[in-house]
Amino acid sequence: MAYSEKLIDHFENPRNVGAFDKGDDSVGTGLVGAPACGDVMKLQIKVGPDGIIEDAKFKTFGCGSAIASSSLVTEWVKGKTVEEAATIKNTDIAKHLALPPVKIHCSVLAEDAIKAAIEDYRKKHA
């Protein structure tokens, strides 16, 4: 399978690997996927008082496409408002990384991960 240069770059030099304190009020954590399916993504956003995502971190168990998809979205959400981040679509991720058809689910998972992180953040601030 031939992967795009962008995908390989994100896999080999993943951005924003790491973790924030889950208990921190400014942090939203999304954990999606399942070990039995071969993909688990944990994506965290750190939101400033102005509602803008200041920072993001991820950890992913999965194939190269899953790792690249999650790395990419940590870059994309930074500097966006929570509302803006919620509009990121899996199709944009798949297009940017030129994911092969069998790997589209990786981009779906990355979209789910952002949504889950935002939901977690919103719950804390409800």
Binding site: V17, V32, G33, A36, V40, K59, F61, V108
Partner: peptide
């Protein structure tokens, strides 16, 4: 492993089987 959420959980002593995973 350093970027695996499952490895992180294992290091923190969390049993991966105790989590309700959403199969996809």
């Amino acid at each position: 492993r350093a970027m695996s959420p499952l490895w992180e959980m294992a290091q923190d002593g969390i049993d991966i089987k105790s989590i309700q995973w959403a199969a996809h």
